[in-house]
Design a protein around this nucleic acid. Structure first.
Lengths: 329, 329
DNA sequence: CTGTTAGCGCCTTCAG
DNA sequence: CTGAAGGCGCTAACAG
């Protein structure tokens, strides 16, 4: 492990010059820059980020703060896409990444979280699965101490960017498509958890559609739970033509219930997880690319860390018909 | 952010004394230890691990090196269990964790990997999904420079521990149970990828059973691929009574094929993923607790870092009958 | 048992 | 444009 000192000696310059040359400072002649780069290459020099972080007080570390869907099993898929997208994105940006689960900071105060992250040399945080009732996280965002990217939460300020799809429009479209394809006359809508940001937006899309079409709409909260969706379907499906669900998992639950009830109702979901294909179901859904969105989130983090100010980023989505073939082929 | 200096001043002692007190060195009087602890608490002192790492040359960081099942989609479940188990385990052990995917170090030489990890202050590596042909990783293990825990790979030396279940026995048991329950007379075995360590061991278990029972056994390599299992089933199922698969995903593929062929054959899998429940299938399988095994791996890493020498750790497993109910309830 | 003294490897003014 | 000097926050001998 050669250090910057070795490089300096080999290039015949001072340590500080090496530092400047390697970090792309402007006040270094082209000549010495080349000399230094060569020396570094020959010595196979890898800068020590720990020392660098200590010295500059900038570690270039970002935390992935992720709310694992521990209760709704089997949607690891989404979280895994998030993680791998972010981690791979970080490699390109040369950012160091650590993963932190919500469960770890549960009951911590904002100050404690801030201290912890700061002591870890963390400058940026990407938050997945934040709800409107996560007050501590809201504080953290308003504090503006860290650069933050929130996924699926519409909050933006100088140090905070948001990244998401147009939930309202997407829900509108998938509901419209499903209803029109099947000529439904009344809709049962299984909404998400009330404290989820996406929940409200998706609900709004559903309501817009119902209003436009003057279609009766019954809204029940399914809390993104497969089990709850199942129960609600047993309870309300007979009186409604179409079942629109705010998540694929709920759609699966609804479908299962319908099968048991032995009645047919078109169902649509939201997310586009492959799990649905495995469940042997065929239905419309909103297909999101979680990997990509997380990768984008990391890109945006790079920009924030470089000093640009927060902004809202909208991603696209597709309305698709999922089926088993999509999975295995 | 108060530093050790502040604590020292507040406690009226020297910086080094604070360091000793807080890090549990023996040569500190109980009296000053208490004083220091109080001061630290009052100032809400969080030690800066970056500085500590630079100074002591020990970062207490461990890398999770994970071979994502990118090809066989939908088994994110296992990887996610691994990740969360390890990360949560690390919290207890106060270890810092970074996640690295195999894809990132593909084509790197052992020296490059070592340099990279070392420069990152990484002392330990937990490896998931390593194959017998990953020569570079074998080098890394033999080098003995890092403390390593390999999951599902039977390699042990002074600095390397292995953690796994008894693959051979598990495969034997699940095959036996499935055959006996159904009174089969000949078995089609769909094996895993040839370069997987578990592949050989599971195959051995299968062979032992066939030998004991003097039962005809046809082995084909399914490469852990659902698609391949499907094809092999079409090809060979008619001539065999029972299909034993070296993974749940293959079992799903086999089942699907059987359904299309419209013939019945008992099938059994290996892993115990919930995905199988979703696929609407009911079959025997070897249920492993990936979360727990990963957590154990991290515990073992803690021991290795503390200086103990590598050892083999065997975990238990269960032979269960998976079905949808297990999933939703 | 406690304090003093050197750094860890790098960044960052500030002179030259 | 380059080099010398002074830390970042903490640990680790070494004296006292």
């Amino acid at each position: 492990m050669s250090s910057i000192k070795d490089v300096a000696r080999r290039a015949g310059v001072a340590i500080s010059t090496v530092s400047k040359a390697l970090n792309g400072y402007p006040n270094v002649s082209e000549e010495t820059r080349v000399k230094v780069n060569e020396a570094a290459k020959e010595l196979n020099f890898t800068p020590n980020p720990i020392a660098s972080a200590l010295s500059s007080k900038k570690a270039g570390r970002v935390a992935l703060l992720i709310n694992l869907n521990t209760k709704t099993q089997a949607v690891d898929e989404i979280d895994m896409q998030y993680l791998s997208g972010a981690i791979n994105g970080a490699v390109e940006k040369k950012l160091d990444v650590i993963t932190v689960f919500f469960s770890m900071i549960r009951n911590w105060k904002a100050q404690e979280i801030a201290d912890y992250f700061q002591s870890q040399g963390i400058e940026g945080i990407i938050i997945y699965g934040m709800g409107r009732e996560d007050e501590v996280l809201h504080e953290l965002i308003e504090e503006k101490y860290f650069k933050i990217v929130v996924v699926d939460v519409p909050i933006v300020n100088e140090t905070t960017s948001s990244i998401q799809i147009d939930q309202e429009q997407a829900q509108y479209e998938v509901a419209r498509k499903t209803v029109l394809e099947n000529g439904g006359k009344s809709v049962l809508y299984l909404a998400g958890r009330p404290d989820g940001y996406v929940t409200q937006e998706r609900l709004a899309g559903m309501q817009r559609f119902a209003r436009e079409e003057k279609m009766p709409l019954l809204v029940r909260r399914g809390d993104f739970s497969e089990k709850k969706a199942r129960e609600l379907t047993f309870q309300y499906a007979s009186d409604h033509d179409v079942i629109v669900c705010a998540s694929d998992l709920m759609a699966i639950g609804a479908m299962r219930a319908l099968q048991e009830m032995d009645i047919f109702r078109p169902v649509c979901g939201f997310d586009g997880i492959t799990l649905m294909g495995y469940a042997g179901m065929q239905m419309n859904t909103v297909k999101q690319d979680f990997y990509r969105s997380s990768q984008k989130a990391m890109e945006e983090m790079g920009r924030l860390l470089a000093g640009s100010t927060g902004k809202r980023i909208m991603l696209d989505y597709q309305i698709v018909r999922m089926q088993y073939l999509d999975v295995i082929c």
